[in-house]
């Protein structure tokens, strides 16, 4: 059985789209802060053309659901809803942190810690176990001040803009500090589609209306009085 998936990822300053056909992936990737809205559909068109498939041949669509910039993850979710609705496609929501974790260069079953600069002096972070071609969340994804990050497991790799902004503090939170840190790691749609393939094969896809952002930060207003 052939699997054809479209993936988009706009949660951070990076904007990307990818098409997966079985094990082959084509991607367009650009670091373009605040331009995701202009770039994303032309990028989708470009990767579909590169892969030689049309939207109505797809089996599903995957998107980076966050955590990340609120507007960015809403654009990904909205575009996904629109395309999924138009072609009655099932959807896979792929964590931006899982996306980073997948990129870690570690041995199978080692733990990695992706962290994204969440502004307001906080980081979005999580611990993932990296297996051969999957990642598994250990505990839950959180948004916290770097000094409040609590890790009890041995982590062999840190990656993401959270490490770029708070490397020293985060190192101190680890059981043992690691040299394997990639501060400029950004989520890629080619990873989004690879992780989505598992969801598709495991029949864990959802309906278009459930293509929703994961914000983590829910305190967006302080109620007066």
């Amino acid at each position: 059985m052939t699997v054809k998936l479209l993936g988009i990822e706009t949660a951070t300053e990076a904007c990307s789209a990818a098409v997966l056909i079985d094990n082959e992936v084509v991607e367009r990737f650009e670091v373009a802060p605040r331009k995701h809205n202009e770039l994303i559909l032309p990028m989708c068109g470009a990767v579909l053309a590169d892969a030689g498939v049309s939207v109505n041949q797809l089996d599903g669509i995957a998107f980076g659901c966050g955590p990340g910039a609120f507007t960015g993850i809403r654009i990904a979710a909205s575009v996904t809803q629109g395309i999924a609705l138009a072609h009655d496609l099932p959807v896979a929501s792929i964590s931006t942190l899982a996306n980073l974790a997948y990129q870690a260069d570690v041995n199978a079953n080692e733990l990695v810690m992706p962290a994204i600069d969440a502004r307001m002096e906080e980081v979005y972070w999580a611990i993932y176990r990296k297996t051969l071609d999957k990642v598994e969340l250990i505990g839950e994804e959180k948004v916290q001040l770097p000094v409040d990050v609590g890790i009890e497991e041995y982590v062999s790799c840190g990656l993401g803009t959270g490490w770029g902004a708070y490397r020293d503090i985060l190192q101190q939170r680890l059981v043992a500090s690691t040299e394997n840190v990639i501060e400029d790691a950004l989520p890629h749609a080619q990873v989004t589609v690879r992780l989505a393939k598992h969801k598709y094969l495991d029949q864990q896809m959802v309906d278009a209306m459930n293509a929703l952002p994961v914000y983590l930060r829910n305190q967006v207003i302080h109620k007066k009085r």
Binding site: N37, L41, S78
Partner: peptide, 14 residues
Amino acid sequence: FVGASVGQSMAWSL
């Protein structure tokens, strides 16, 4: 952005 993204994406893919 929500309405524009959903609307534009639907139109594009249709």
